[in-house]
């Protein structure tokens, strides 16, 4: 029985890690309708910047956690202003392709700056201990990830549902002309949302780095995983992303436990099943076709 409990803790921890990584992508897509394929790259920049900060600040993880996401958010802002803002009239598909081209560019830029060696960020001292649950030692950091994931989810839900900003965002999603007519600067909304999306991607990078490490091509692996979470949850729904993250966490962890041969198979199998049964994802809205 203990082993089931232990695997459940693993599932939730892994699932919420996925949520932390994906929520930025989900937010940007949900509000702007732009699928940011450079999301993985922003995540990677976050991880690498925090690596540099920890190396130069005597392993200060907390400093990295403050600075790195901001740095990524600024990158994201620059991308929005230089690349995406002048191209909004090209349509969504073109913008998706643009961000994909960007992912290629960022791939080589980070390789040039940080090299291609495998790197890692040590756990912060205060979170490096272990806690015994279900007769097994768990790293405190894993449990911290659970807490961070829950707080982040709560915060995003609160902003989206309970604040004026959230109202504007939801309105912008359903009717752009109307919100413009009401005197809200939609351009500003876009920029801010992209900034926040970048911040969350960078935040995910810092949080995940001590667990997942840093290595070349990490962004594409992350991107694919994030896309799967996004699709299973239903496009543009933070709640859906949350449910999907947990579902994947549980399914994948228990698959690795019960039928490890299918580990590679299971995430995509799950996605195919969800899409066939519920073509709009678990909690997806009917998306209006463009």
């Amino acid at each position: 029985m203990d082993i089931i409990g232990a695997q459940l803790v693993n599932s939730i921890s892994y699932g919420l890690l996925l949520f932390v990584i994906t929520c930025g992508l989900s937010l940007v897509f949900g509000i702007l309708g732009v699928l940011n394929l450079a999301h993985g790259s922003l995540y990677m920049i976050g991880a690498y910047v925090s690596y540099s900060i920890t190396v130069h600040s005597g392993q200060n993880f907390w400093l990295a956690l403050i600075i790195a996401p901001l740095a990524v958010a600024v990158c994201s802002l620059i991308i929005e202003m230089i690349l995406l803002r002048p191209t909004y009239q090209l349509g969504h598909l073109s913008q998706v392709l643009l961000t994909f081209g960007l992912a290629y560019v960022i791939h080589d830029m980070t390789a040039a700056i940080w090299g291609s060696d495998v790197l890692s960020i040590p756990l912060p001292q205060s979170l490096s201990g272990t806690v015994t649950l279900f007769n097994q030692a768990f790293p405190v950091y894993r449990l911290a990830v659970i807490a961070i994931g829950l707080i982040l989810a709560g915060l995003l839900w609160f902003i989206q549902e309970k604040t004026r900003w959230g109202a504007i965002i939801r309105a912008g999603l359903s009717d752009k002309e109307m919100i413009c007519a009401l005197g809200v600067n939609i351009q500003l909304v876009f920029t801010v949302v992209f900034f926040i999306g970048g911040y969350l991607a960078g935040f995910g990078g810092v949080i995940a780095a001590p667990i997942l490490g840093l290595y070349p091509s990490m962004e594409f692996q992350t991107l694919i995983l994030a896309l799967v979470v996004l699709v299973i949850g239903g496009l543009g729904s933070i709640a859906g992303t949350f449910v999907a993250s947990l579902t994947i966490g549980i399914v994948e962890t228990f698959c690795r436990f019960l039928v490890p041969e299918l580990s590679l198979f299971v995430v995509f199998g799950l996605m195919a099943v969800v899409l066939i049964v519920k073509p709009n994802g678990l909690l997806g809205r009917q998306v209006v076709k463009h």
């Binding site: 699709v231 996605m271 066939i276 709009n280």
Partner: peptide, 10 residues
């Protein structure tokens, strides 16, 4: 649309 892309990927 995007769901087609992801399903083929899957």
């Amino acid at each position: 649309g995007f769901y087609f892309l992801m399903l083929t990927l899957a």
